[in-house]
Amino acid sequence: MQSLIIDNFEIQNRLLIGTGKFQNKYDVRESIIQSGSQVVTVAVRRIDLERHEENILEYIPDGVKLMVNTSGARNADEVIRIARLAKECGYGNWIKIEVIDDSKYLLPDNQETIRATELLVKEGFVVFPYVSADLYVARELVKVGADTVMPLGSCIGTNQGLKAEEFIQILINEIEIPIIVDAGIGCPSHAAKAMEMGADAVLVNTAIATADNAPNMAKAFSKAIEAGRLAYESGIPDSQNIASASSPLSHLLS
């Protein structure tokens, strides 16, 4: 199976895991280990001085690539601020841009995301912008130097799967940089479908983090994504409206 190369980093396991919402941080670690995921997202926040919070980074296995998301940013300027904070801490320069100013649907602000991408690329960040599945937006992201496009499958945390399927397919067909489906992926079959369509990777958080057994669910996603990718690379035959026998139709002895 082909590897996905981003910024000279070889990704063999195309499941990216988000680390929010887990019941406990041991499950974060176990989910990463059990699935073999090589890239995980974290967020940055003001430290609560009243109570000691566990540092999420202590639960991320060595060798796993960290990607800091800019959740909480409402415009490009806030994205830049968060990205610089993350970089200052010394955990690399991979940034997932999330610009959200809508608390009901959590849809991304595509225009601010394009602006933030352009600025971060100029500062040397490797940029993963989370956007709506829109061809014009994706083309703009390519133009300003994004490393990937991350179209949403459906709204964040809804587990509704690939509501944007047709539009994601257009991006897969037309955009030359990696397409990583992010958000709304609710079960492994959704992820497998995205991979069969030709997506380069899938990012999953809620569906793993809120499963009864998160590490096993992470493993299930990993298998589904591997299966979907292998199927895609193998060339999935077109569907037909007329039956085509798999066995000889002639009589037994004639």
Binding site: G18, T19, G20, K21, F22, K25, V28, T41, V42, A43, V44, R45, R46, I47, L49, E53, N55, I56, L57, V68, N69, S71, L85, C89, Y91, I156, A183, L203, N205, T206, A209
Partner: peptide
């Protein structure tokens, strides 16, 4: 002064 740390996030 703001002190910022890492938390879980998707």
């Amino acid at each position: 002064v703001e002190l910022i740390g890492f938390v879980g996030g998707g």
